[in-house]
């Protein structure tokens, strides 16, 4: 660091006690943010790597400012691409919190929009609508889910183009005030960027969300259940492992979203099992034990259609729910 200071003209002489990088790191509380990220998000190495880079940059930037070197925030507009259920929306929702705690954005808030919120229905309707969304998002993060819908090449009079132009203008001129995150499936986003080179060049960070491995999916299942105050017993754990093995090979596999749906169904079966047990022994007045209420047993999971011998891929009703085109908008717990 002192070598840098020597290169500078004398008027920018460093203050006597400029804090070192390590001291800045400890002051900033970034370690806590990164630790939390590692605990709560399973897998997703590229995402965590990029967040680490940003954190390191912001610390170095602070140190540079302390030494009187020029400093300015880099553009942090991002694009998240990946298959369904890989955690794009979840990470985006967490990004506002992370960037706020790193001191990059001023307000800890995220405005999540889709095409409907940006594009109007008639001439002259789009610009005010887009500007209104941008205004609300100022100081925080604007998250555009399924951003490729903004551009509809089949209709040359589509108003989406107008929304894109306004977005580009603000993304360029007000980099300090706003971080824009685009999200979508890889193939469609590629087409989107090819037809909008302006957008491609203004989004500096393209982060791919890899598919989860079977082991990661199992960890995710356990984390989800812990959050909901459930637990798998040992047999259920190996049943879950089998379930994931089977499910991975099926079409329309939507990573963590499929796991969440499977767990939701297992919870229904568990409730049904407890209820029927209670009905069969009506003279037992005692409340079900805490452990029974929390435990999901192997039977709850093995009852899935996936394990039934006659099941054909195109017959499983679960597929309809998790097909990417009609997947319900992911709530916060989507991981």
């Amino acid at each position: 660091m002192s070598a840098i200071a020597i290169d500078k003209p004398p008027q920018a002489s460093p203050p006597a006690a400029a804090p070192g990088l390590h001291a800045l790191y400890q002051q900033s509380g970034i370690a806590e943010v990164l630790g939390q990220l590692d605990r709560e998000l399973i897998g997703l190495a590229p995402v965590k790597g990029r967040i680490r880079e940003v954190a390191a940059y912001l610390i170095v930037d602070k140190a540079r400012r302390a030494q009187g070197l020029t400093s300015g925030p880099p553009s942090l507009h991002m694009c998240f691409t990946g298959n369904p259920g890989t955690g794009k929306t979840t990470v985006a929702q967490r990004m506002a919190d992370i960037l706020h705690r790193l001191g990059y954005i001023r307000k800890n808030h995220l405005v999540s929009v889709t095409r409907d919120d940006l594009v109007g229905q008639y001439i002259g309707h789009t610009a005010p609508k887009t500007r209104d969304v941008l205004k609300r998002a100022m100081g925080g993060v604007l998250f555009i889910d399924e951003a490729y819908y903004l551009y509809r090449p089949e209709n040359e009079r589509d108003y989406g183009q107008e929304a894109i132009e306004i977005l580009l203008q603000v993304m360029e001129n007000q980099r300090d005030d706003l971080v824009v995150i685009l999200a979508g499936y890889q193939a469609r986003m590629d087409v989107f960027f090819q037809s909008n080179p302006g957008m491609a060049s203004r989004v500096a960070h393209h982060i791919g969300f890899p598919d989860y491995t079977a082991e990661e999916l199992l960890q995710i299942a356990r984390l989800m259940l812990t959050r909901m105050d459930y637990r798998l017993d040992d047999e259920a754990l190996s049943a879950m492992r089998d379930y994931i093995e089977h499910r991975l090979r099926r079409p329309h596999f939507a990573n963590a979203r499929s796991i969440r749906n499977a767990l939701d169904r297992a919870r229904l079966r568990q409730a049904q099992r407890l209820f029927q047990n209670a009905m069969q022994a009506p003279d037992r007045r005692d409340e079900p034990e805490l452990d029974a209420l929390m435990r999901i047993s192997a039977a709850d999971i093995r009852a899935s259609r996936l394990f039934q011998p006659d099941n054909r891929p195109d017959k499983d009703p679960a597929q309809i729910v998790v097909a990417p085109q009609v997947a319900p908008r992911a709530p916060t717990s989507n991981r």
Binding site: K107, L134, R136, A137, M138, G139, G140, V170, L178
Partner: peptide, 11 residues
């Protein structure tokens, strides 16, 4: 529904 002064400045 503004969260930050930058939005007002935009207007």
């Amino acid at each position: 529904d503004l969260k930050d002064g930058a939005g007002a400045l935009l207007e």
